[in-house]
Design a protein around this nucleic acid. Structure first.
Length: 476
RNA sequence: CGGGGCGUAGCGCAGUCCGGUUAGCGCGCCUGCUUCGGGAGCAGGAAGUCGGAGGUUCAAAUCCUCUCGCCCCGACCA
């Protein structure tokens, strides 16, 4: 049925790329590992930005912008940080035709440039907290790239906050993770687990890294957002101190948190089907398309004017588009809007006009119903709501179906490949055991959950006592 | 970095092994007519320095040398 889209069951990876191509979201650029985000893809990013930006502001944050270039010496100031990021940086060595005295790193993340600036802004506890977010592009010279999931240059937001106490920084870190969780579940319609990264998986330079992890349709995990408690690491590296209420000097406490255009990849892989993209209604740049149907030119004029009249009162209540292009036939349009993931399609033709009806079609289920024209808006709004909830529910059921509590190592090794999924296993906390997961099954500890009840058990690798289960999965 | 593949019209490809008229095909595009409730049909038309440089030859998309780039699969990562 769907031309140009490989079936998920045949080749999931190929399917993913086909969906992007057919929905016209993005394409490879002439620069290795970099993509051109096309209008259809960028519109989704704008929806994501709009909602997140609102949520950031509701939690007291403001936007600012720091430079793209970071003097190499700044990046080197925090030891762990440079070790983590130096291998994947792009470095500018020339400017204006001359060799630069000091090379400039194209930011892979902005902690260093920002903390070197915060040093100038902070003297007293009265200057705190600083709650800043920036929308930016960053560059990480990855070995292997995939559209949206991992590109050399990507768009993201990075929050960088400064606090007077450890407790406040911790609260901020957890608050922003909660913002991400809420956004993922309520807008992307993707259920996520929240928790702490292991020592080896945490952000370079952080004390703790918290994350949200989602399951894709191929049962692999995708890290969809991170929030880091940076402790006083960057304050020490950049010598950022403040005087507290008692006149005592201390280093400032820091957090940083981010989500990227990877969320578009998550959205595609979580919901779309063999007919193409499916966008959750709350993030759909175009939630509704109206396809008028006609035969003759006379009929065309009559149907279109009828549709215009009907939809006139919808303006301001819902975003929609009337597809009155004459060069395409209805079947072509149906297919095109499906590939693009528009949640609701409304068909209105001569028969419908005669019966004072309209046909409403839902993208995710294909459900097709006829509705009296004066009720269309109301029903469409209701269907959009239903679809948003249905997508979440379906994703949640999928995750639950492929989540397993496992205690036997052989059992784990067998099932991690087939069917794959999320595995809750006991882990003693030793890095040696963590490494064994990776070597034996190509899976990783995705997180140590916040919400799991304490449960005594034995590490699935070494048998040592364990206090709780952790989430293990193959990941992107 | 290892393994595989590719570069020919806007897109997808054939032609390359075995050199030889005017470099083809599908989709898309333009014009016209017929169509139009699930990817329209017919007719006509436009569109190419065959990734780049050098070489061999009467003759190169095709052979040789060099070179640039991209994609896919693995190890690193949001």
């Amino acid at each position: 049925m769907a031309k140009g889209i490989t079936k998920r069951s045949e080749d999931y990876s190929r399917w993913y790329l086909d969906v992007i191509a057919q929905a016209d979201l993005a394409e490879h650029s002439s620069v290795k590992g970099c993509m051109v985000i096309k209008p259809n893809g960028y519109a989704i990013w704008e929806k994501i930005q709009g909602q997140l930006d609102k949520m950031f502001k509701e939690t007291g944050h403001v936007n600012a912008y720091f430079p793209l270039f970071i003097p190499e010496s700044l990046l080197r100031k925090e030891a762990e940080h440079v070790e983590g990021f130096a291998p994947e940086t792009a470095v500018v060595t020339h400017g204006g035709g001359k060799l630069l005295e000091e090379p400039l790193v194209v930011r892979p993340t902005s902690e260093t440039i920002i903390w070197s600036t915060y040093k100038k802004w902070i003297q007293s506890y009265r200057d705190l907290p600083i709650l800043i977010n920036q929308w930016a592009n960053v560059v990480r010279w990855e070995m292997r790239t995939r559209l949206f999931l991992r590109t050399t240059e990507f768009l993201w937001q990075e929050g960088h906050t400064a606090h007077a106490t450890a407790a406040e920084a911790e609260a901020e870190t957890r608050q922003m993770l909660e913002v991400y969780r809420q956004f993922a579940e309520e807008y992307l319609a993707i259920p996520v687990h929240t928790g702490v990264k292991t020592e080896s998986e945490k952000f370079a330079g952080a004390v703790h890294t918290y994350c949200i992890e989602a399951m894709m349709q191929d049962r692999r995990a995708l890290q969809a957002g991170t929030s880091h408690n940076l402790g006083q690491n960057f304050a020490r590296a950049f010598d950022v101190t403040f005087q507290n209420e008692d006149g005592v000097s201390d280093y400032v406490w820091a957090t940083s948190w981010g989500v990227s255009t990877r969320l578009i990849g998550a959205l595609i892989m979580a919901h779309s089907d063999d007919n193409g993209l499916i966008v959750p209604p709350r993030l759909a740049p175009l939630p509704v398309v109206v396809v008028p149907i006609w035969k003759s030119d006379d009929e065309m004029a009559a149907v279109i004017s009828h549709v215009r009249e009907l939809t006139a009162s919808w303006k301001g209540k819902i975003d929609f588009k009337v597809d009155d292009r004459n060069q395409y036939r209805p079947g072509f349009k149906f297919n095109e809007w499906e590939k693009r993931g528009v949640p609701i399609r409304i068909e209105i033709g001569p028969k419908d006009i005669e019966n004072k009806q309209a046909v409403i079609v839902r993208r995710d289920t294909g459900e097709k119903i006829s509705i009296a024209q004066d009720q269309v808006l109301q029903v469409v709004l209701q269907k959009l709501q239903e679809m948003q909830e249905a997508l979440f529910k379906r994703a949640l059921e999928h995750r639950e179906t492929y989540s397993f509590v496992v205690d036997d190592l052989e059992d784990f090794k067998k099932r991690i490949d087939e069917p794959g999924g999320f595995f809750w296993v006991h882990w003693c906390g030793a890095q040696a055991c963590e490494t064994k997961f990776q070597e034996s099954s190509k899976s990783t500890i995705r997180l140590i959950p916040f919400d799991a009840q304490k449960e005594k058990g034995k590490c699935i690798i070494c048998g040592s006592p364990s206090q709780q289960r952790v989430l293990v999965a193959k990941s992107y």
